[in-house]
Design a protein around this nucleic acid. Sequence first.
DNA 1: GCGAAGCTGTCAATTAGCTGTCAAAGCGGG
DNA 2: CCCGCTTTGACAGCTAATTGACAGCTTCGC
Lengths: 223, 223
Amino acid sequence: MRLLLVEDTEDVADAIISSFARRGDAIDHALSVRAACESLAVQDYDVVILDMGLPDGDGTEILETIRTAGSRTPVLVLTARSDIEDRVFALDKGADDYLVKPFDLRELHARVRAMLRRQTPDRSGVISFADIQFDPAALMVSVSGVPINLARREFNLLEILLANRERVVPKEKIFERMFSFNEDDVNVNAVELYVGRLRRKLAGSSVSIKTLRGMGYQLVSDE
Amino acid sequence: MRLLLVEDTEDVADAIISSFARRGDAIDHALSVRAACESLAVQDYDVVILDMGLPDGDGTEILETIRTAGSRTPVLVLTARSDIEDRVFALDKGADDYLVKPFDLRELHARVRAMLRRQTPDRSGVISFADIQFDPAALMVSVSGVPINLARREFNLLEILLANRERVVPKEKIFERMFSFNEDDVNVNAVELYVGRLRRKLAGSSVSIKTLRGMGYQLVSDE
DNA sequence: GCGAAGCTGTCAATTAGCTGTCAAAGCGGG
DNA sequence: CCCGCTTTGACAGCTAATTGACAGCTTCGC
């Protein structure tokens, strides 16, 4: 999952970032309206967490930017004020949920999850491809019924490839989905590394990860 | 097990809460339609216990909210009235069971368990997995017939793992199910701690709790 | 009520094993 | 045959998980 956090208070931001990062989500951080808009122009996000009070303007501007662009990305608004009016205002502007500071991080996570759930109703299906079964709910992958052990990043990578099975996925796209901006510059080589590791673990299956030199990777069935 | 109690009568609510808390279940309490809807938006529950008469509306609204959202969470309705019509009305609206006040707490517990059982068709009350038998009604666990002593939280943890046996359960999910919101922020480390304790107590059995670093825990049979 | 026993959850030291870097070797296309 | 992309092994770092010790609570028997 890829999130954008727009928040200028350092300690609040740090707490949020590390809590999501720990779960393996890719979270980017913007400190101002401008930075947020730049990130949004460049990158698709699954969820935006938006503080209302920012140094160079109001969070509402960002909300409007998102909605006038026709995006349906769920937005959760954070604010220090608890007035009902404020809440109604944000919700009217297109926010999907609302949280008053100070809040419990678990509640933030719960709300983000709830938004995503509303977004994609019933995506609890296992994906089967050739002889591998991928179960995102159980966090499990099996090859013709026998489970294999994947580490978080490997699982992550397989999920991306599986979502684009039979299609060529550029390495940069994989990289983006696996790592967030602020994860101090990870080398693109990391992707290649994980492709290698995943290949080894999928060795016994009838799918393989094909390299298209200069273009990307492709998950194919050997049939 | 995580429950939501929607009830505005204090003494009734207190009795219910402490009875479930004693058992080790995480129970959240909402005093109004509004509070209930907010909790439901944020958190998945295994069961909702719903009083019909509330200060700011009728329990039916909540029932409708739940069902129109497509959720199948079992709902047990409490009411002071015993009319058949009332009962039919609630059930038509999507309630799974019905209890007339005043009621016996043991009956409430029994009905809640029954609803959960219906939820997962393969559950006939006691769960057997490899050589362990788990009886939620009697609060008993045995390994190949001989009972073992589990503390409340250990029992709780085992219940969660058993409900997701062979699947990977993220630590955060376990945490959510073990502790309710109002339990002042317990460290996530508590989960790890109980995993350790449960492991020791299950040492003689043929099941084990596997760690998947960064992903969660998984109850597996050693066969 | 009182003390004992057991249950809970915090803390911190330790361990385990994933992560990502580097660099060397391999490979493919022109 | 050369260049640049890709693969891979080794390794250091680091974060997540394990575990023992402990203090505060509950519960229970008397």
